[in-house]
Amino acid sequence: MEQMKVNQIIVVTDGRSNVGGNPIIAAKEAVGNNIIVSAIGIVEKLEEDEGPIEEVQNIAASGGGEWELTYIENLSTTLHMLTQRTVNKTINTVVNKQLKELIGAELDEIRPKRRNKFVEYIENVSDEIHIKCCILLDCSGSMKSKISKARESIIDLMNSLKGRKGKSEVAVIAFPGPKTEMTNIVNDFTDDIEYIKDEICNIRTNGTTPTAPAIYKAIELFSGRASKSNDIIEEEPLLEDSIV
């Protein structure tokens, strides 16, 4: 169980992707690389404007992850909860597989009263497991007023992860990047909270929402090699502030 690792991409966005390919296909490719893709939609009012919500759900569905809608004020709690759930789900899957082999039943099929030992075990593992988490932060024009809260939330996720016994690494990718780049690696995987704090200050908001290229960039970071992303980026990103 010690070698078990959780690789997670979390897309944080307040709109629908509008340039650079289909994020749902990108999420599928991530799964092929042993990475779970979760998504958080930042909304003004819960349950309005169905476009971005649907995309958030679809990214999580094809990425094997979790999704959630939240106000920007609650982003930090949502990031924490979502990560917790993804980690538990990952360990659950492994434990269920082992249980099936050992006793021919999954956790669900064991009497509720007898489940507590397994649940306790899962909680212990979740505290010790190695977590690598790549946050893809939507930095399009519409995020302007929300970006400082978003920065705080990322630092706060690091606080949560650092409370655990296991190793935690966080990378941050902004999309779009400055100038005409689709993406910008704000910081590569690190467990140094001060380093993230310094780097994250440089994030600026402007332009379009190239969600798919950001996911491909994250896959590159995880696997340490170039992915399909290079073939896909042909369109000119940003330029117009009005496109969000």
């Binding site: 759930r85 538990n88 659950n92 509720p112 489940r115 507590n116 649940v119 899962i122």
Partner: peptide, 11 residues
């Protein structure tokens, strides 16, 4: 829907 949290709270 979370087996983890319900089982734990009962415990």
């Amino acid at each position: 829907e979370d087996i983890q949290s319900i089982t734990k709270e009962s415990d």
